[in-house]
Design a protein around this nucleic acid. Structure first.
Lengths: 339, 339
DNA sequence: ATTGGCGTCTACAACGTTGTAGAGTGCCGA
DNA sequence: TCGGCACTCTACAACGTTGTAGACGCCAAT
């Protein structure tokens, strides 16, 4: 049985409140009393009981990180960053996966469950929630900061990447290197508000600005952005027979999967086809050839999001209008577009 | 302010204990009372307070997963599996990273901190703890299950992969395909008990059994098993000028980094050099060429470890001698060793 | 000499829940 | 008719902590 304040108090001959005061660095304690209490703490191996503290204070020191899945390397790297930043604030992180497939309703239920887990707040990387669903996040029991997506008029702080601008920049990067027929892999039919929709928009904007035609054969919809999806989508494009001279993978995994298929089909990268990805995963430095990509500012997202969340938690209550921050991105040129 | 049992009790005209009974499915309640209480619960939006429950019951429904870092894809995939399995038991998982560099003392401190986080138990993937340090885990305040490593006579349940046997099988796989001079990348000087030491042992055992010479130039020590380490170690081997016809990367990332360097140096895989990895990461299916590797039974490890932990938690107290389970492994042959 | 204030410490209540003991009712069998 | 039992519900205490109010002694200022 673990020692409690009572045990320490009995051993050192003071009241439990005095022990509590020693632990919480209350200043007005005689040095000899403090010493006696500290000795008793050491002897009993006393550790404060977190549940009791939580019950009194209402704070758990825990936050949730709600993400699609860790198997997706982007989210693993994001989680790593969040864990690191949260540790600096003394917060522990509870990771919840919202697997795809259950739709907005299922996702919302998963999020609600995560919020009831007894956390002080949550970071939530939206998977496939829509505007109209977002309203029900309004009365979340704890502060919420949204990540990576752009839910317009959402009820919470957002820390997002510049999906549209970055996708436009990626496409322009290809166009500037002579590409005129660019395949885009990873769009989702009918999706507008999520990453897939926004990146598709950036792609189309860049085409339009350059006066290039949009060819649906080069933009096969579907996929969950795993490497296998990139391979499959690239195969589909090849099978249409539509000519192309560049590929924009909506994330690095898709781009890498596509690159693999291209090489098997005898297309050289970057000589025959330029390839760019999105995410700046660690592994893009080690693919063959090294993949040009977009660094979406992941570390900055983690830092800003945790900071916002900590502020909201400290504020207790509504505390001001939702903020929306877009962190800066960067095109990271590597071998797959250099020629 | 969130509703409490008192609010629901007042609204439905019963005692708080009756409300509590309704919530906990106590059988002896009149249907109409139950209905009245349930209506009041719905009206107030009552949710049980976790901290209070924890204080009473001593259970948090939380477990820690202590791993080196999520940026390492192996651990991300392991964490994904653990999260999934834990969810089936209604447990939430709190991930703690023990970054390398602080040595055994730092690691032990990090683990102790994680155990005090108010969790019911912990899964712990040992990074660089040694036998003598393991003793201090004896009096952990909560049950502990060790993952992936083999701490002999350790005080807790272990669920490990067959590091030695699997590494031997990997090496034999290369030898069976004609390799006689096999580079091994990822060993740690002087390490015996960790994955690096065990895999090195399997490698040496296979060499010995086949009557092949051990050449230290082919086994450069050092590295944290990131892709960049594989690239660096492969470069070191190339620079020694020592001939070799196969590479055993102690994990997939190292093997992939090495493969990249080989290809840049003009060595064809598998024609000139066979390459095998270890871990069966998702991405090994999509490298160029697809990487032969060892599936160490990660999913089984997660399932078994969570099951053991749940049992230990339920047992409250010592409850029996430590168990040691080795899950089965499998050589997954892909293109990098097929010729 | 009295008052006020500071330093040190304590008693008590409260956070929200659940286990224990038991009260009250109605029904059954002796 | 009455004891016993099952059913339904309640009062109280306890989990371990911290906030509040205040007791007590001492010193400085009035």
């Amino acid at each position: 049985m673990a020692a409690t304040l009572h045990d320490v108090a009995r051993l050192s001959g003071v009241s439990i409140k005095t022990v509590s005061n020693v632990i919480n660095d209350y200043p007005h304690i005689r040095p000899e009393t403090r010493a006696r209490v500290e000795a008793a703490i050491a002897e009993t191996g006393y550790r404060p009981n977190r549940a009791a503290r939580t019950l009194r204070s209402g704070r758990t020191g825990l936050i949730s990180l709600i993400i699609p899945e860790l198997k997706n390397v982007y989210f693993a790297e994001l989680a790593d960053d969040v864990l690191t930043v949260a540790a600096e604030y003394g917060l522990a992180v509870l990771i919840e996966q919202i697997r795809g497939g259950s739709g907005p309703a299922g996702e919302l239920a998963a999020v609600e469950a995560a919020l009831r887990r007894g956390v002080d707040g949550a970071l939530y990387s939206v998977l496939d929630l829509r505007d109209e669903d977002a309203a029900s996040l309004q009365d979340a029991p704890v502060p919420l900061v949204l990540l990576g997506e752009r839910i317009f008029g959402g009820p919470a702080d957002h820390v997002t990447m510049q999906n549209v601008d970055a996708a436009r920049a990626a496409t322009e990067h290809l166009i500037a290197r002579g590409a005129t027929r660019i395949a885009a892999l990873g769009s989702h039919e009918g999706e507008v508000v999520g990453s897939a929709g926004l990146r598709l928009r950036g792609y189309r904007e860049a085409l339009e600005a350059a006066g290039l035609e949009f060819d649906p054969r080069l933009v096969p919809p579907g996929g969950t952005w795993f490497r296998s999806d990139g391979a499959r989508l690239m195969t589909e494009v090849l099978e249409t027979g539509a000519p192309f001279d560049a590929v924009f993978g909506f994330n690095d995994a898709v781009a890498i999967g596509a690159m693999r298929v291209l090489q098997e089909a005898g297309r050289r990268v970057p000589d025959d086809v330029l390839v760019i990805g999105f995410d700046d995963l660690d592994e893009t430095r080690y693919t063959q050839p090294a993949l040009t990509t977009i660094d979406p500012g992941r570390r900055r997202i983690a830092e800003t999001a945790v900071k916002f969340l900590v502020e909201r938690i400290a504020a207790e209550g509504p505390g001001g209008a939702p903020r929306e921050i877009e962190v800066p991105f960067r095109v990271v040129e590597r071998e797959s577009t250099r020629r």
